[in-house]
Amino acid sequence: MKRRAATWLAAGLVLAGCATAPPPGAAPPGALRAGRLVVKVAEGDQGSRSHSAAFELQGDETTGRLRLLGPLGTQVAQAEWGPQGVQLDDGQGRRHFPDLTTLAREALGEPLPLAALLHWLAGRPWPGAPHEPSAQGFVQLGWAVDLSRWADAATLQAERLDPPGVSVRARLDPAP
């Protein structure tokens, strides 16, 4: 249960960029954002793990809070981050991580390009690495980022091209 909650939190923290650069017509920076998240991690011959959760996010990549909610709206886990690092409360205790990248690596067992993902979720490539345009969006850091549903449905799909496969799909609820 602890690993599952941490996995959700790591995946959800990917969404931190949504608060800093929401899709057109969305809430201003720092405003409370909500939506759904699906994360799939391939496990070789054993298939894959796939999880989905609702989330509430407030803040930006430097300071913020993320809550993950179960099907009935109950809190599964919460993370808060700032200059002192990341605090994770998964219902079974509070743990500290030095940064979001460490939390993601420990929870998912795979590193995620969180700095890049923050920009991807704003609908643009990360300026810290080269990218190549594609028919659906762009390819950067070994990930195919599909933005074909970003403008109309605030939905992003990012898939790692090299094994093991990891995909992240996020859909933001319309801003109030």
Rank of each mutant, 00 (worst) to 15 (best):
P98L: 05
S52D: 11
G93E: 10
D60W: 08
G142P: 05
L100M: 12
G82I: 03
L103G: 01
S134Q: 11
E61I: 15
A154Q: 04
P133N: 13
V38P: 00
F97Y: 15
G85Q: 02
A151H: 14
P130V: 02
G137I: 05
V76E: 12
R95G: 02
P24A: 10
G17M: 01
P83W: 11
H131M: 05
E106K: 14
P83N: 07
A27H: 09
L161K: 09
G64W: 11
T20P: 00
A144V: 07
P130K: 06
T155N: 02
P23Y: 13
T62K: 13
R36E: 13
V39Q: 09
C18K: 04
G109H: 12
V41L: 02
L118N: 10
C18F: 06
G93F: 08
S134V: 12
G44Q: 01
E132S: 12
Q46C: 07
G85H: 05
S48K: 09
L147V: 11
V38H: 10
Q92S: 11
T63I: 13
F138D: 00
G137F: 12
A144W: 03
R49V: 15
E132A: 14
G123R: 06
A34Q: 14
W120I: 01
Q140I: 07
A115L: 15
W120D: 03
Q78T: 15
P127D: 01
S148K: 07
G123D: 03
R149V: 00
L69C: 01
R94C: 03
P127W: 06
A107M: 10
P23L: 02
G137T: 03
Q87V: 12
D89G: 02
A107R: 12
S50V: 15
